Simulated scan of single mutants.
Amino acid sequence: MMKIAHGAIRPFLTVLVAFAALALVALRPAAATPQIRVKEVTFPVTLSDGDTYLISGHLYYQGSYRNKTLQVAIHGATYNHRYWDAPRVDGHPYSYARFMASLNYAVLAIDQLGSGESSRPDGDLVTLEEAGSGVHQVLASLRGARNPLRHAFDEIVLVGHSLGSITATYVQGAYGDADALVTTGMGHVPVPSPFDPAVLAVLLQQPYFTLPPEARAALFYNPRLADPDVIARDVELIDELPRGLATSVLPFQYDPAVTLVDQVTSPVLVQLGELDPVAPGSTADLEDDAWTSASDVSVQVLPGMGHNFNLHLHNFVSWIPIHGWIAARLGWP
Results as ranks from 00 to 15, higher is better:
Y175I: 04
R37E: 09
P44E: 03
Y96W: 10
H92R: 15
G114I: 01
V268L: 06
A20H: 01
V199S: 09
L139I: 06
P121E: 01
N222L: 02
D177G: 13
L286K: 06
M186P: 00
R28P: 02
G123T: 10
V264G: 00
L54D: 11
K39L: 11
V38W: 07
S64G: 10
I110A: 00
A32Q: 15
G7Y: 10
T292W: 09
Q137K: 13
L219M: 08
L149R: 08
T69C: 04
V189Y: 02
D285S: 08
Y83N: 08
A86N: 01
N308Y: 14
D227P: 03
L313V: 07
A152Q: 01
F252C: 02
A21L: 10
K39A: 14
T52N: 05
P277Q: 11
V38I: 12
N80A: 05
Y60I: 00
T42W: 15
F316T: 07
S56Q: 15
G185L: 02
V107C: 06
N310Q: 11
P34N: 04
Y221F: 13
S162Q: 14
A140C: 15
T52E: 11
G114K: 01
L211I: 08
L163F: 11
G144S: 14
S64C: 06
V301W: 03
V107W: 14
N104F: 09
D262W: 07
I231C: 10
D234M: 07
V182F: 15
D196W: 03
I36M: 05
L70N: 03
N147P: 07
E155I: 14
P194L: 12
A101Q: 08
D262I: 08
V138S: 03
G144D: 15
L241P: 00
V249L: 15
E274P: 07
D285T: 04
P251M: 10
P280T: 03
F12G: 12
D227Q: 06
H136P: 01
I9H: 06
L139R: 10
A26G: 12
V38S: 07
W84Y: 12
A140S: 15
A140R: 11
L311E: 00
W332D: 08
L245G: 00
L128K: 04
F316N: 02
W319I: 01
L269K: 00
T14W: 11
L113Y: 15
Q71C: 09
S282H: 07
R150D: 07
Y254P: 01
A279E: 03
A31T: 14
W84V: 02
H161Y: 12
E130D: 01
P228F: 05
V45T: 13
L149Y: 13
D229F: 11
R120I: 04
P34Q: 03
S295E: 14
S318G: 15
L139N: 11
A294H: 05
D111A: 14
A23G: 14
G164P: 00
V17L: 05
G173Y: 05
V126A: 05
Y170M: 04
V89P: 05
A32K: 07
Q263L: 13
A26E: 13
A86P: 00
I9K: 15
D179W: 11
G114N: 02
V301R: 00
I231D: 12
Q172K: 10
D111M: 11
R150G: 06
A140Y: 12
F19A: 13
I320S: 03
Q71W: 08
